[in-house]
């Protein structure tokens, strides 16, 4: 399910919109500020986090990012966040707040806080990918000081993930055509398909690498034009960062 959503999201990065045209560095730094603000809240905070939903929503609307692929990817990884906080309601049963006349324990609040933070952080990152492209992000990271070999590895990882997906889809289609009466592969078939997938992906990856080598690949992905950091990028960066910090400061004051 999340596989095609990832591809869809990746392709959205190649659209053109005001959000897409922003310098990737501005988007990355603004997102980093957003993430720091979100994770810096106390563990039981819920209400103070809600206004932060506005950033991914506004960015998504500006970049005309489809809601479905983002939601599907957020949902796909959500079991990890839910599991991480699942024990909280049982470990911390002390009433911490009264909501609509009902006493709510600290554990329930911290559970809700973890899940909300997960939704905020993952959706913000996914929206940035959808309005920037992964290669654009890697290049921006490079210009922000990421070592070149690491950047090249990220680019390769991105390319090979989709190769793996392509090969997996072909294998899956081949199995479905030859086992029309069986909806899912048996464990034995799945095991053999997995080993075949790894081998085929390795071979395909090798072919791609060879194509790159003959065209002069030396470990780096040269950028065509670095692009200048414009006033609109600075306005976006300062605006988003200020809003994030202001919301955090406001929450601090309310708490005190």
């Amino acid at each position: 399910m999340s596989r095609s959503a990832a591809r869809e999201l990746d392709l959205q990065g190649y659209r053109d919109s005001a959000a897409h045209r922003l310098d990737p560095r501005a988007k990355l730094v603004a997102t980093a500020v957003f993430l720091v603000c979100v994770v810096s809240f106390p563990k039981r905070e819920v209400l103070g986090l809600v206004p932060y939903l506005a950033l991914p929503l506004a960015m998504g609307a500006l970049g005309r990012v489809g809601f479905r692929p983002v939601a599907r990817l957020v949902l796909a990884a959500s079991p990890f966040a839910v599991l991480a906080a699942a024990a909280n309601p049982f470990l911390d049963r002390q009433p911490a707040a009264v909501i609509l006349g009902v006493a709510v324990s600290g554990g329930v609040l911290s559970f809700a806080s973890v899940v909300l933070r997960y939704v905020l952080c993952s959706s913000a990152l996914l929206v940035v990918v959808a309005v920037t492209t992964v290669p654009g992000i890697v290049r921006a990271l490079g210009r922000l000081g990421l070592p070149r070999p690491l950047g090249a590895q990220l680019m390769m990882l991105h390319r090979y993930l989709f190769l793996l997906e392509d090969e997996g889809e072909r294998l899956s289609r081949a199995r479905a055509l030859r086992e029309p009466l069986r909806k899912r592969a048996t464990l034995g078939t799945a095991r053999r398909m997995l080993s075949s997938l790894l081998w085929r992906s390795f071979e395909r990856g090798d072919r791609v690498y060879q194509c790159m080598k003959v065209r002069g690949f030396d470990g780096s992905f040269p950028a065509l034009s670095p692009g200048a950091f414009r006033t609109s990028d600075a306005v976006f960066l300062v605006g988003v960062s200020t809003a994030c910090v202001a919301l955090r400061t406001l929450a601090l004051r309310v708490a005190s």
């Binding site: 190649y14 395909r204 072919r207 791609v208 194509c211 002069g216 992905f221 040269p222 065509l224």
Partner: peptide, 21 residues
Amino acid sequence: DPDDQLFMPTVLEDVCFGPLA
């Protein structure tokens, strides 16, 4: 297989890859 050979994000960047490298 052209899919093996086209590895940059856009057509222009892909064509530019060789000269830039």
